[in-house]
Simulated scan of single mutants.
Amino acid sequence: MRLMLKKVLLALMVMVLATAAALAVILNSHPDMDAYQALNSPTAPPATPLKVRFLGVATVVLDDGETAIMTDGFFSRPGKLKSLAGRVGPDMDGITRGLARAGVTKLAAVIPVHSHYDHAMDSPEVAKRTGAMLVGSASTANIGRGWKLPESQIRIARLNEPMQFGRFTVTLLASRHSPTGFTGGTIDKPLVPPVRAFDYKEGQSFAVLVQHEGRSLLIYGSAGFEPGALAAVSADVVMLGVGGLGSRDAAFRDSYWREVVTAVKAKRVIPIHWDDFWVPSTGPMKPMPAPLDHFDVTMTFLRERGAKEGIDIRLPAQWDAMDPWQGLGAK
């Protein structure tokens, strides 16, 4: 009997180890991007007056040579095991490398699109280093307070209220996170890391409308939407968060496109938040692996809808400056 029990336990251990090994392989197998090279945005010429850099997830920098603003500012990218089973906090060296790689030394504002760790965790430290105002929800403000960011550098934004940073006009609009098990919740007191990744609750999600001397860009960091929230908004270009979109059904993808892209009359869509945020930011970005998302499904959907409605689809340049409005005609 004991021998039989030992054999059963050994068989179970082998099965568990085999399953874990197979899962590890799957979660480290990323979709190939070679098929989408024709969609890559070109690097902006040096004389481009307003440059935009995509730094991964929903971190975007806009710089007109006088003023620079950033969404999120996420550079730490803790690994899978730490994110899912351990505690996370800002990686000071990772932030140093990220800011240096992006050429960022001074910012007027850092604006997390919501308060999950892969958006807002590093934002207070980025604000400290660059002198920026941390702008966001009450939950984001509590992340800043937990990091001892001075109150003078924390601003709780109001929906639909334009804010001026140099020649940038920034308006935060109502949005929602993609419907997942992590959606919702608020951070109601200062959050002091290291904490569990799930302690970074969503708070208010924002769509970030940036206007600059006749140009308009909507940074939409999550693949969820607030019905009708963008009905009165116009934006030539949408940097569209597509994280998890490939795992949604066709009806959801259609609604998302209609409520965001069609609503603002966009001429170009640049997908963001498709990259695996457990991969260090020192190398090239890789799409999130299946079964966590389905990048090819997302790209097929975007290309088909873009072709049908005459909307240009481009992948963002990675870390390099680009001109999202290039080729769209006069301002």
Rank of each mutant, 00 (worst) to 15 (best):
M1R: 15
L5M: 13
K6S: 12
K7I: 14
V8E: 02
A18H: 01
A20M: 13
L23K: 13
V25N: 13
P31M: 05
D32S: 07
M33W: 04
Y36S: 03
Q37W: 06
A38E: 12
S41D: 02
S41T: 09
T43Y: 04
P45R: 05
T48G: 05
V52H: 01
V57C: 01
I69K: 00
F74N: 01
A85R: 14
D91C: 05
D93L: 11
G94N: 06
L99V: 09
R101G: 11
L107D: 06
S115I: 12
H116T: 10
D122Y: 09
G131A: 01
M133A: 08
V135T: 00
A138S: 14
S139I: 04
R155Y: 13
R155S: 12
I156Q: 13
G166K: 06
R167H: 14
F168W: 13
R176N: 10
G181F: 08
F182R: 15
Y200C: 10
K201P: 06
E202C: 12
F206D: 10
L209Y: 10
E213M: 09
R215D: 15
S216M: 07
L217A: 03
L230W: 09
L230R: 03
A232G: 09
A235I: 04
A235M: 02
D236E: 13
G246D: 05
S247A: 14
R253Y: 06
S255G: 08
Y256C: 08
T262H: 10
A263D: 07
V264P: 10
P271S: 11
W274F: 10
V279R: 12
P280C: 09
T282P: 00
M288S: 11
L292G: 07
H294F: 14
F295N: 05
V297L: 09
M299Q: 05
R303N: 14
R305T: 08
K308Q: 14
E309T: 12
Q326D: 11
